[in-house]
């Protein structure tokens, strides 16, 4: 049994869960900036309040899982992304406590501060996650078994591009979540904002995809492309991934523009999920099997086999249980939030 491979898939899934679930929380967080008034803002946060904590836990599983299954990768990547990780953590701290504090604040100025902490924290957390992702794809400098680059190596035009794209993607997820969870005026706004986000995201997606191809010749070769020719035997089997992404973008655009009465409210979120999945899969294809691009593969960074087995037993039992009660809680809070729910109905 190829334990490092299994664990790389599991951690990739954990990160994917984080992106889809907390990405939507961060998206809603950013959208509170556009809320017309405090009532609308409360309505927006009420859609995520019961679930955000569980959603953020997937990030801890991603970090903890990387430490447990690929300690060398964890040890090389974390110092390499020191400042953006710090930025992300500080932003997530503000975002997390603001969920509670913005309701507790009494004076207008402190209320405004925690409202600002909520959307500012969401925005900066999303940007730093994009910067980290961009710097990760770009690769890091390694000497022997540790990071050997500088404090600002993560700051490149490419990482900035990804740093802009990720918040836009999260905003799209947030809009689709609001479409599912709200009604009337906010629902209509979410559809409109969602369309703008989708257009912006499509442009970003194309730019990031093309830029990724130029990061390293090995990535270009993986997709069967080069400056001179296209290698169809490699390009064709992979072509469905970007094509599916494109198709989903068009479908979602139609849903967001079409008659709301004929479109199920859950479908935009599902389609947005599909778009993220296609991008994520494309990324996995580009980078596999590098875990510290382009120095260490998943097998070179993996923990001892007995550690991987020990934790895999736990994951095999606990992950299905976690998924079951997560689904249960989502179903429990299913349905549109009501105006009265603004105060935690």
């Amino acid at each position: 049994m190829d334990l490092p491979l299994i664990w790389s898939v599991l951690i990739a899934l954990a990160v994917m869960m984080y992106v889809l679930l907390d990405g939507m929380d961060l998206g809603v967080g950013m959208l509170t900036f556009l809320a017309a008034n405090e009532g609308e803002r409360n309505l927006m946060t009420a859609t995520i309040e019961p679930v955000w904590d569980g959603n953020e836990t997937w990030l801890v599983l991603g970090g903890g899982g990387l430490f447990a299954a690929f300690p060398l990768a964890y040890a090389v990547l974390m110092p390499a992304f020191y400042l953006p990780v710090l930025l992300m953590l500080a932003a997530l701290i503000f975002r997390g406590v603001a969920f509670e504090f913005r309701h507790k604040a009494v004076r207008p100025i402190t209320k405004a501060f925690w409202n600002g902490a909520f959307y500012g924290g969401s925005l900066i957390a999303a940007i730093s996650q994009g910067l980290i992702l961009g710097a990760f794809i770009g690769g890091v400098d390694v000497a022997e078994r540790s990071f050997s680059g500088g404090a600002f190596d993560w700051l490149t035009p490419f990482s900035l591009l990804v740093g802009v794209s990720v918040p836009i993607g999260y905003v799209l997820l947030g809009c689709c979540w609001l479409i599912l969870k709200t009604a009337d005026a906010l629902y209509a706004k979410a559809r409109r904002w969602g369309l703008y986000a989708l257009i912006a995201l499509s442009i970003c997606f194309m730019a990031v995809s093309l830029a990724t191809l130029s990061v390293d010749p090995r990535v270009t070769d993986r997709w069967g492309l080069s400056m001179q020719y296209i290698e169809l035997s490699k390009a064709l089997p992979l072509a469905p991934i970007p094509l599916a992404g494109l198709g989903l973008v068009l479908w979602l655009a139609r849903d967001l523009r079409g008659d709301p009465l004929t479109i199920p409210d859950w479908r935009p979120y599902l389609l947005a999920t599909g778009i993220f999945l296609s991008g994520y899969l494309g990324l996995a294809v580009s980078l596999f099997p590098w875990l510290v691009p382009f120095h260490f593969t998943i097998w070179e960074t993996a923990a001892q086999d007995n550690a991987l087995t020990f934790l895999l037993v736990g994951a095999a039992i606990m992950l299905p249980v976690i998924l079951i009660y997560t689904v249960y809680v989502y179903r429990l809070f299913w349905g549109k939030v009501q105006a009265g729910d603004g105060y935690h109905g």
Binding site: G64, L311, L319
Partner: peptide, 28 residues
């Protein structure tokens, strides 16, 4: 982290799997 990852890592992993999700989800 690198030196102890194969020993301590799974313990932290178990913490996330058996405790964090449980508390965070049912807190809602």
């Amino acid at each position: 982290a690198e030196r102890t990852g194969s020993v301590l890592g799974p313990l932290f992993g178990y913490e996330v799997l058996t405790a964090f999700f449980l508390e965070a989800t049912f807190l809602g």
